Amino acid sequence: VTTYKLVINGKTLKGETTTKAVDAETAEKAFKQYANDNGVDGVWTYDDATKTFTVTEMV
């Protein structure tokens, strides 16, 4: 189990959260659900070296 981080660069919501998951795919599903629940829709990137997902909403 690995800890993954999500950085949110939203128009109205900004911040970070973490989740523990067995792999990046599982973490991504959890983060996308979290973003969807919070009304964040944007471009996703993932950095495997730092285990960090970033979602950026276009203005």
Rank of each mutant, 00 (worst) to 15 (best):
V1P: 06
V1S: 11
V1G: 08
V1H: 12
V1M: 10
V1E: 09
T2M: 14
T2W: 10
T3H: 06
T3I: 13
T3E: 09
T3S: 07
T3K: 08
Y4V: 00
Y4N: 00
Y4S: 00
Y4P: 00
K5P: 00
K5D: 02
K5L: 14
K5M: 07
K5I: 11
L6M: 04
L6S: 01
L6Q: 01
L6W: 02
L6E: 00
L6V: 04
L6T: 01
L6P: 00
L6R: 00
V7H: 05
V7Y: 15
V7Q: 06
V7A: 05
V7S: 04
V7P: 00
V7D: 03
I8H: 03
I8C: 04
I8K: 01
N9T: 13
N9D: 15
N9H: 06
N9P: 03
G10T: 15
G10S: 14
K11A: 13
K11I: 15
K11L: 12
K11S: 14
K11G: 08
K11W: 10
K11M: 13
T12Q: 15
T12R: 02
L13D: 08
L13E: 13
L13H: 09
L13K: 04
L13G: 08
K14G: 14
K14N: 09
K14Q: 13
G15W: 15
G15I: 15
G15N: 11
G15M: 14
G15D: 14
G15Q: 13
G15A: 14
G15E: 15
E16C: 04
T17N: 09
T17H: 15
T18G: 04
T18R: 06
T18E: 14
T18L: 14
T18S: 15
T18A: 08
T18H: 08
T19N: 05
T19I: 09
T19K: 06
T19C: 05
T19S: 06
K20W: 15
K20R: 11
K20D: 14
K20S: 10
A21V: 06
A21I: 03
A21Y: 04
A21C: 04
V22N: 10
V22K: 14
V22T: 07
V22W: 08
V22H: 06
V22C: 04
V22P: 15
D23G: 04
D23F: 04
D23I: 03
D23Q: 05
D23H: 04
D23V: 04
A24M: 11
A24N: 08
A24E: 07
A24G: 06
A24S: 07
E25Y: 15
E25W: 08
E25N: 09
E25L: 12
E25S: 14
E25Q: 12
T26V: 07
T26D: 15
T26A: 15
T26R: 07
A27C: 02
A27S: 02
A27D: 00
A27W: 01
A27T: 01
A27E: 00
E28I: 09
E28V: 06
K29D: 12
K29Y: 13
K29I: 13
K29S: 13
K29W: 08
A30H: 15
A30L: 07
A30T: 10
A30I: 15
A30D: 11
A30Y: 10
A30K: 07
A30E: 13
F31K: 00
F31I: 02
F31S: 01
F31M: 03
K32G: 03
K32D: 02
Q33Y: 11
Q33K: 14
Q33E: 10
Q33M: 07
Q33P: 02
Y34H: 08
Y34N: 02
Y34F: 11
Y34I: 12
Y34G: 01
Y34Q: 03
A35V: 06
A35R: 01
A35E: 01
N36D: 13
N36F: 07
N36Y: 14
N36I: 12
N36L: 09
D37V: 12
N38H: 12
N38E: 09
N38R: 14
N38Q: 13
G39M: 13
G39Q: 12
G39W: 07
G39H: 12
G39V: 04
G39T: 06
V40F: 09
V40R: 02
V40G: 02
V40A: 05
D41A: 07
D41W: 10
G42E: 01
G42R: 01
G42T: 01
G42K: 01
G42N: 01
G42L: 02
V43L: 11
V43N: 08
V43H: 09
V43T: 12
V43P: 04
W44T: 01
W44P: 00
W44Q: 01
T45I: 12
T45M: 15
T45G: 08
T45H: 08
T45Q: 12
T45F: 09
D47N: 05
D47L: 05
D47H: 06
D47F: 04
D48N: 13
D48V: 12
D48W: 07
D48P: 10
D48S: 12
D48K: 12
A49G: 13
A49F: 13
A49E: 09
A49S: 09
A49D: 09
A49M: 11
A49K: 09
A49W: 12
A49V: 12
A49Q: 11
A49T: 08
T50S: 15
T50Y: 08
T50Q: 14
T50M: 10
T50W: 05
T50N: 11
K51F: 09
K51T: 04
T52V: 08
T52F: 02
T52Q: 10
F53Y: 06
F53I: 02
F53K: 00
F53W: 11
F53T: 01
F53E: 00
F53R: 00
T54F: 04
T54M: 06
T54E: 08
T54D: 03
T54G: 03
T54C: 04
T54P: 00
T54A: 05
V55T: 03
V55K: 01
V55H: 01
V55E: 00
V55A: 03
V55C: 04
V55Q: 01
T56C: 04
T56V: 15
T56W: 10
T56A: 06
E57I: 04
E57V: 05
E57W: 06
M58I: 13
M58N: 13
M58F: 14
M58A: 13
M58K: 10
M58C: 03
V59H: 08
V59S: 12
V59L: 13
V59E: 10
V59A: 12
V59Q: 13
